[in-house]
Design a protein around this nucleic acid. Structure first.
Length: 597
RNA sequence: CGGGGCGUGGCUCAGUCUGGUAGAGCGCUGCGUUCGGGACGCAGAGAUCGGAGGUUCAAAUCCUCUCGCCCCGACCA
């Protein structure tokens, strides 16, 4: 290779990306790999988009990289429109930074930690609050610089216990994460609303057709208000409850319902012999009462603290996420029989009645609180109480008693807003937004001086989108039995061109010419120049999933034409080769992004 | 972390129960014939059967240990 002349930098050379299928890295696979069980996983593998390297760790081949690049461009445009500034923070972070926020110890094995050569504790970033605070607290120190929003598109690593379904749940992934900094809660809330709109636009523009914005659990991120954006899909891991008119939508972990309590006169507490009846179903059957007239006792331990006695209506189940959030603990374990007995309760016959004096934390769901005359255990093997009434019969002097919603909502339960029966759908979490408040700025001393010269903690928001997961979600919502049907905005190519029988007179010349014309017109074309049988080429085209296809063959060439077909099969027509460039250009008039907010 | 399943050419699998020198289809290379919804013929290349021990004259196959991957659950910004 001769040295470059002065001014002849390689970057300045016009490069022609390889768009011939004969040269594209990544082959199509005819058979479904045994590991693939969902449409997106199957087609990403079969179409030559991704390859697994390890559990939850994938290589993106050129086709997938083209898709994610287009997704990232849309995200960038929308983030820039809400005043985001792109940055890039490290993947490898020092443990000490996470010690500042407390998450070094608070986060479990999901955080991958390791030592560097100097025996210093390091970690792979699973999210970047600490890193961004480290950046902002040194760059921003005046109210005049607020609000400010930065974002990055960066690799994250989470040591997931169980990766699954291809790109839906992985260990290493690319994420767009944004962080905003404010001097007031009102400013945060205003910006949060703007980001909510930006997210809605992003998911529309990438071609998702069914995305729900729902109330979500704030989990380990902390903070108060949070929303998740859920792409509705069968293979989704999350369950969303919503009212038929969608005025109420919430993740199962925060979904509420209203359980009516009957009005009836209180009857006297009565102990009754119930030998061997330890489960709700047993007791209800034995005493011939409906399960919703019983009380269920569930015991947990949190850390090394006292026993948690969760009490809920017999037909309902405790939602452990709700309970954890109420107790502000991250690990909740089912208590052992010994622990239950040590607290003065009897497994299978546990009761809040005779717990006096024991160090039990009693958490009662509202479904029990006003519910009159229910059946509960008697803290004595083989005995229950009839006509238990919480306010009257639980000894509030001796035990702490909290009433808080800890129920798991079921499909058909009444909506807390409209009262209509809630329905459940499955969804893939493609994005989320959080109002963090000062959860990180306080412990990490991220402050600014306000107008009066007083030092204050910045108020933060954070906003994430999983890029690879988004690509998979798009396939989940747009595919047929043959492959993906890419929305034009994110398709790896605009046009898929086939040359049938290229050795026949003039075909390959005409196809090459068309390919060149389209490329010159700025169209992203992938050209199947391999000369395989028609059916083979068509099946591969479907498996790649480009929304438009042109075919040149001896048959079409005889008429000076090419055949156009849309991937969804809704449009098929012959076009003249002369006017092909114009036809295609008209076909793919880009959807201009909306302007303004 | 509990429960289940699977590791045999690049891919999908058979062979394992009942030990006897490793197979098929797809894919790949070459030649020829075909050519509008996954063509055909001929000739080839390619696997120390996940790994390590052990039993045996002989191990893909039996035993022990181990690693990896998938699924269900638990967990999960």
């Amino acid at each position: 290779m001769p040295p470059y002349e002065s001014g002849d930098h390689p970057k300045q050379k016009k490069t022609h990306p390889i768009m011939r299928l004969s040269k594209l890295v990544g082959r199509r696979i005819k058979e479904t790999p045994k590991d693939a069980h969902t449409p997106s996983h199957t087609f990403l593998i079969r179409g030559g988009y991704i390859r697994q390297v390890s559990a939850g760790i994938y290589t993106l081949l050129p086709l997938a990289r083209r898709v994610t690049a287009r997704i990232c461009e849309i995200i960038r445009e929308e983030m820039n429109r809400v005043d985001g500034q792109e940055v890039l923070m490290p993947v490898v972070l020092p443990g000490e930074l996470w010690a500042e926020s407390g998450r070094l110890t608070a986060v479990g094995p999901e955080l991958l930690r390791f030592k560097d050569r100097n025996d210093k504790e390091m970690l792979l970033g699973m999210t970047h609050e600490e890193a961004v605070v480290h950046m902002i607290r040194t760059e921003i120190n005046s109210y005049k610089q607020l609000p400010c929003t930065v974002y990055q598109i960066q690799t994250k690593y989470r040591d997931e216990a169980r990766p699954r379904a291809g790109l839906i749940r992985v260990r290493e992934f690319t994420m767009k994460d944004a962080y905003s900094f404010h001097s007031s809660q009102a400013c945060l809330e205003e910006h949060y609303a703007r980001l909510h709109q930006a997210y809605t636009r992003i998911f529309e523009r990438v071609g998702l057709t069914n995305v729900l914005s729902i109330e979500s659990d704030t989990g380990m991120m902390g903070g108060s208000t949070a929303h998740e954006f859920m792409a509705v899909a069968e293979c989704g891991e999350d369950t969303i409850f919503m009212s038929p008119d969608q005025t109420y939508k919430a993740n199962r972990d925060v979904a509420r319902s209203t359980y009516k309590v009957p009005q009836e006169p209180l009857k006297p507490l009565e102990k009754i012999h119930t030998p061997g009846q330890k489960t709700i179903a047993d007791v209800a059957g034995f005493l011939n009462v409906p399960t919703h007239k019983t009380g269920k006792a569930v015991f947990y331990t949190a850390g090394d603290d006292d026993l948690i006695f969760a009490m809920i209506r017999g037909d309902l189940d405790v939602n452990e996420t709700k309970l954890k959030n109420h107790l502000c603990v991250s690990d909740l374990k089912a208590a052992t029989d010994q622990q239950i007995r040590a607290a003065g309760a009897e497994p299978g016959y546990a009761s809040p009645v005779a717990l006096s004096g024991s160090n039990v934390r009693l958490v009662v769901d509202p479904s029990v609180k006003g519910n009159p005359n229910i059946v509960v255990g008697a803290n004595e093997p083989g005995y229950h109480y009839l006509n238990f009434n919480l306010e009257r019969d639980a000894d509030e002097e001796a035990i702490s008693l909290e009433t808080v919603d800890i129920a798991t909502v079921r499909p058909g339960d009444p909506c807390p807003v409209t009262g209509a029966p809630l329905t459940a759908v499955r969804g893939i979490e493609v994005g989320n937004i959080f109002q963090l408040g000062t959860k990180y700025s306080e412990p990490m001393a991220c402050t600014y001086l306000d107008q009066s010269g007083k030092s204050r903690h910045m108020i933060m928001g954070c906003y994430g989108i999983g890029v690879g997961r988004l690509m998979a979600a798009i396939i989940e919502q747009s595919h047929d039995e043959y492959g993906p049907i890419w929305p034009a905005a994110v398709s790896p190519f605009t046009m898929h061109m086939c040359a049938l029988n290229p050795k026949k007179a003039g075909v390959s010349e005409a196809a090459d010419q068309l390919y060149t014309d389209l490329c010159s017109a700025g169209i992203d074309v992938v050209y199947d120049d391999r000369g395989d049988k028609a059916g083979f080429q068509f099946n591969e085209a479907d498996l790649i999933g480009v929304p438009h296809r042109l075919v040149v063959s001896p048959k079409t060439l005889a008429e000076g034409q090419a055949e156009y077909r849309s991937r969804d099969g809704k449009r098929v027509e012959m076009i003249s080769l002369d006017g092909a460039s114009r036809f295609v250009t008209n076909l793919v008039v880009p959807v201009a992004p909306e302007t303004g907010m």
